[in-house]
């Protein structure tokens, strides 16, 4: 046995055969105490451990903002990109290396404000990736300025007399885009639901858009306070094709059976403002996936010869 083979064997002997959730934490997260981003990071670590994903086989792409620090804390390849541009970067990664698992982490500023154009087109491309849109309803990194998802009338440093416009609804917007294939909403303060939603998003072949309502203890703690305190203000969308984590039925009395295949019902539910709704609004695993549509099929040697001969025939004298 050669020396090289021996060393490979040694490597295999040392290789980690089982990853714990904590193995995926590269360094401690640096967010404010009580930030909902920690909840999202924990759920992601659980998912990675459940799936036993190899750190070198996945990529986390982010833009700019508090949540975009995410890739620094995950033990995987990461790219802390440009403000609003996480989605095109991630699309490039996926197209170049379709075998990698791609995760995109954006805030409401990144996704629905400066990068909104990419959000529409990435949804339409439907490349296979999991998109975490951490929505705290405010620009947190620059410290308290109105975002498109800030509720109307809510005061911030750039709208001291309250946000003028009604908030942009990311669910309604995404559900309105052609070729949308997976649209879900969850919340950082319901860890079991957050985890189950990410699991479903990971399993979905295509662009899985998950809006994670995220508490910002510094600037928008009060926006979600009622829902955090009172589970009766939240309705869970449940279905055998959706998410229904065990144990939550005791906490959340309001439950609605919603078939995620029903886009009209999904749009109607997204439009309603009577209650907060968590769950998978829409899911269709049959939508064309961009990295598959654009995949170059392998060419056999015979096919190459045929093509060459065809080309040569053009110049035959």
């Amino acid at each position: 046995m050669s020396g090289l083979a021996l060393s490979l064997l040694d490597l295999e002997a040392d290789a980690k055969v089982c990853f714990e959730a904590e193995d995926y934490q590269r360094r401690p997260g640096k967010w404010c105490a009580g930030c909902g981003d920690f909840g999202a990071l924990n759920a992601v670590k659980r998912l990675l451990a459940k799936e036993q994903l190899q750190p070198e086989k996945m990529v986390f792409v982010s833009g700019i903002g508090c949540s975009s620090r995410f890739p620094h804390y995950v033990n995987a390849y990461g790219f802390h990109g440009i403000h609003g541009r996480a989605l095109p970067l991630a699309t490039g990664v996926k197209l170049a290396r379709p075998e990698l698992d791609v995760f995109v982490v954006m805030g409401d500023g990144d996704c629905t404000s400066i990068g909104a154009g990419h959000w529409i087109h990435a949804t339409r491309y439907n490349a296979n990736m999991v998109v975490l849109m951490l929505d705290n309803n405010i620009y947190g990194l620059t410290k308290n300025q109105t975002s498109p998802t800030t509720p109307q009338g809510y005061a911030s440093m750039t709208s001291p007399r309250g946000a003028v416009l009604p908030a942009l609804d990311p669910l309604q917007a995404t559900l309105g885009i052609s070729n949308a294939s997976f649209v879900a909403q969850t919340a950082d303060w319901v860890p079991a639901h957050l985890y189950a939603t990410l699991q479903a998003a990971y399993e979905h072949p295509g662009f899985s858009f998950v809006r994670i309502l995220q508490r910002c203890p510094k600037f928008t703690d009060d926006i979600f306070a009622e829902n955090v305190k009172n589970p009766d203000a939240t309705e869970l969308l449940v279905h055998e094709e959706g998410v229904d984590p065990p144990g939550l039925e005791k906490l959340f009395k309001a439950r609605r059976v919603h078939d995620p295949k029903n886009i009209d019902e999904a749009r109607s539910l997204a439009r309603r403002t009577d209650m907060l709704r968590l769950g998978i609004f829409f899911r269709d695993d049959s939508m064309p996936v961009y990295d598959e549509v654009r995949a170059v099929p392998p060419v056999t040697p015979q096919e190459k010869i045929n093509r060459l001969n065809k080309e040569f025939e053009r110049y035959a004298v």
Partner: peptide
């Protein structure tokens, strides 16, 4: 539109109700 370290300028102009002007975030 905010960006560090310019944000305070736009926050300052947002604070004042202009009679004729408009501040658009």
């Amino acid at each position: 539109y905010p960006i560090t370290p310019q944000t305070e300028i736009v926050e300052y102009v947002a604070r004042f109700p202009f009679s004729k002007g408009r501040v658009i975030p």
